[in-house]
């Protein structure tokens, strides 16, 4: 019995992949671009990680550069690293608290729409901001929130004092979160709307007969049905807690709010690309990645503990 198992198991696996491939060839072919993306942009760069421990001079190459050990890590902890980390974490927590639930709420609202035609139009319009470059979004923000802008003038009239939308460090993060909500919420609904189509309509009919109102149906049927999708998305989001991007933040930053706009990503970009401190930037980037991995693994553990499927 055991002997059979040992010999047949690998053989079985092999044939199964070939069989599977024959069954759904297009699925596997469609996988290729995604695989290539991860190999080229995520795995191949890992080969160059040693530059984080070197005084890397591009012209001398990775093998020719001087080995400095943990020098860059020490440098980072001697600098105002706490500012970069706390800016990153605060922005991420705000984004999870406000940006993350937004598409779920919007998807639920869309799901309740009666007119299919109207729903389709709304959905299409909601996707548009996603395709607008962040540079344009920031330019529009500057126009309407600057001292000549309509929002600025309106709030000055209403509140009786002016609000410095573009400069005040306290408002900066809300502007970023607001811009992200405006830009990405519509697009983010797609995955939740797809999950909502899987909800068994018989459940709704049964609930209606039992006298459940709209809110109760939403709470007891719709939300539990998409709960695993929400948890999955949340776990995935945890992996990018330290990813704030830099483009958006650099565009919105100025001398008044720079203290709150400098996140780890901005730091890596500024020291790596702008100041050409490749080793220093790699070291900080590496630290960031290690923390991210820890966060994903623990989020997944928590998901399992809560009885959800999690990521793996």
């Amino acid at each position: 019995m055991t002997a059979v198992k040992k010999t047949s198991a690998p053989a079985h696996k092999k044939t199964s992949f070939a069989v599977e491939f024959k069954k759904h060839p297009w699925l596997y072919i469609m996988l290729i671009p995604g695989l290539l993306y991860f190999i080229i942009f995520k795995y191949i760069p890992m080969v160059f990680l040693p530059i984080a421990f070197e005084n890397y001079v591009p012209f001398s190459g990775m093998l020719g550069s001087q080995w400095v050990g943990l020098k860059w890590f020490e440098y980072f902890f001697k600098s105002s690293w706490w500012r970069y980390l706390s800016n990153t974490l605060i922005l991420s927590v705000m984004s999870i608290a406000f940006t993350f639930p937004a598409p779920i709420i919007l998807a639920l609202l869309l799901n309740e729409m009666r007119s299919l035609h109207y729903k389709k139009i709304t959905q299409t319009l909601l996707y548009v901001p996603h395709f607008i470059s962040i540079v344009i979004v920031v330019s529009i923000t500057y126009v309407i929130f600057g001292t000549d802008g309509i929002v600025y003038k309106l709030t000055t009239q209403l509140l009786g004092h002016s609000v410095d939308y573009l400069g005040d460090p306290k408002i900066f993060r809300w502007m970023i979160v607001g811009q992200n909500i405006w830009k990405e919420t519509g697009w983010g609904t797609i995955i939740f709307l797809a999950a909502l189509t899987n909800v068994d309509t018989q459940l709704y009919e049964a609930a209606m007969i039992d006298g459940a109102n709209r809110a109760q149906r939403l709470w007891h049927i719709t939300l539990p049905a998409i709960r695993s999708t929400i948890v999955l998305m949340l776990v995935l989001r945890m992996g990018s807690v330290l990813d704030t991007g830099y483009e958006h933040l650099i565009l919105m930053a100025n001398s008044l709010n720079r203290t709150v706009s400098q996140t780890l990503d901005v730091f890596v970009y500024q020291s790596g690309i702008q100041n050409a401190q490749y080793s220093y930037a790699s070291a900080v980037g590496l630290m960031k990645s290690v923390v991210s991995v820890v966060l994903v693994v623990s989020a997944n553990k928590i998901a399992h503990a809560l009885g959800e499927d999690g990521l793996y």
């Binding site: 400069g167 001398s255 008044l256 720079r258 220093y280």
Partner: peptide
Amino acid sequence: TLMGTTLSTDVEDAQVQYIAGK
């Protein structure tokens, strides 16, 4: 070479904030 730019940016930001009365 390593941190001069970062440091002077911070100082310059503070100067701008000072000029702007912040």
